[in-house]
Computed example of a mutant assay.
Amino acid sequence: MSKLHIDSITKSFGKKDILKDVYLICETGTVCGILGRNGSRKSTLFQIIFGTIKGSTQYIKFNDTILKNQFDRKNRIAYLPQHFLLPKNIKIKNLIDLFCDKENIKKISDLELIKPFLNEASNTLSGGELRIVETLLIIYSKAEFILLDEPFHSLSPKIVTEIKTIIKQQSVTKGFIISDHQYHDVLEISDTIFLLSDGHLKSIKDLTELKRFNYLPTII
Rank of each mutant, 00 (worst) to 15 (best):
E188R: 10
K115L: 10
K205M: 09
S12V: 08
R41M: 10
S154Y: 11
E112R: 15
L35H: 11
G51L: 02
G14W: 15
L201W: 03
I60G: 02
P87E: 12
T135E: 11
E129T: 09
I92G: 05
E144K: 14
T135L: 06
D110Q: 09
L125V: 05
R76P: 00
I193K: 11
I66V: 15
I9C: 05
S154V: 09
R76A: 01
D101F: 01
S171M: 08
V160D: 05
K11S: 11
K42G: 03
K11C: 07
L98F: 15
D185M: 13
F117N: 09
D21E: 12
Q82P: 00
I167N: 11
T161D: 14
N104S: 01
I25H: 10
Y59W: 06
I193H: 05
I193Q: 03
Y183V: 10
K68S: 07
I96G: 10
L195G: 07
T10Q: 13
Q58I: 01
E162L: 14
T192A: 10
S154W: 04
Q182L: 15
R73A: 10
F71R: 05
T192E: 03
L98I: 06
Y140C: 07
N75F: 00
I189R: 09
S171I: 07
I163D: 06
Q58V: 00
C26G: 02
I163M: 09
N89F: 03
G55K: 09
L216K: 14
I53Q: 10
I105D: 00
N94C: 04
Q170W: 01
G33Y: 13
T218V: 09
G128T: 00
G51K: 03
H184Q: 15
S43Q: 07
K211P: 06
Y23S: 13
D198H: 05
I25D: 14
K15D: 15
Y79P: 00
L207E: 15
S43F: 06
I90V: 05
K142G: 12
K106S: 12
T218R: 15
L201V: 12
Y183M: 11
G127D: 08
L111A: 03
I166T: 02
G14D: 12
Y79I: 01
Y79V: 00
E134M: 04
Q170T: 03
I167C: 13
H200Y: 08
Q182Y: 13
E162H: 11
I96Y: 05
F50K: 04
D101L: 02
L111H: 13
T192F: 05
T65I: 10
K42R: 15
D198E: 12
K158H: 14
L147P: 01
N123F: 15
E209T: 10
N38S: 13
I166D: 01
C26P: 00
T10N: 14
I105N: 03
L35A: 08
S40R: 08
S171N: 14
I178Q: 02
D180H: 09
Q47A: 10
I178L: 12
C100N: 04
D21A: 11
K20Q: 13
L113S: 05
